[in-house]
Amino acid sequence: MKKGNVLLAVKGLRVAVAGNEILKGVDVTIRDGEVHAIMGPNGSGKSTLAQVLAGHPAYTVLAGTVTYQGKNVLDMKPEERARAGVFLAFQYPVEIRGITNSYFLRSALNALRRERGEAELDPIDFLQFLEQKLKAIGLDDSMMNRPVNEGFSGGEKKRNEILQLAVLEPRLAILDETDSGLDIDALKTVAQAVNQLRNPERAFLIVTHYQRLLNYITPDVVHVLADGRIVKSGGPELAQELEARGYDWLRDGVMVS
């Protein structure tokens, strides 16, 4: 298969939060349409990587570069990254009181459309658009008129993140432990939705602690992050191996790539 263009290049990325260095030199290259999984034990820095790519203000970049579509992402505000096509599905989606899901989605979509010079969607046009998206990823509209994430179950929150992904149509979708806290049925729903959204124009970076999500979403590349560094990269079979052997053999071992 012909390799796509480089979409995201992370080089020598070192990141601290509250004075603690979490990422100690991370290198990842993602090409158009590729699905990468980042696995690793708790505290390895997986979520930090996801959040830094989205521009979370709590993190300080100490060194390294992050280039997205040839542009320096680290100079961009979170909203600029989003408008350029970067999307983060949150591990802990935030409740937004008083704002219904559909109002929120329309506001976000229109912010992106304005950026692209497209006409904003009015509520009626948006509803039609939304119905198509819901249908495509197999969700119903029961969450649409409720305040964003408020009172949502764990599974509903994660499905809602995937719905946002479907509506906002990013070029790079980062899933931060989207599988955590899901029962097997909810996991399958989320995985099926992600598979629906896979296409040659859209890359995924899937951060996960467990291998089970990767039973349903087959990645192109699997990376193991341990103590702030990528200690091993490989194909989908690496995920199986981690499931069988755990992380300890890598944590203490020699770096292999």
Binding site: A82, R83, F90, V94, A108
Partner: peptide
Amino acid sequence: FYLCSRGV
């Protein structure tokens, strides 16, 4: 941050 990360 959640809203900004969605492009708002």
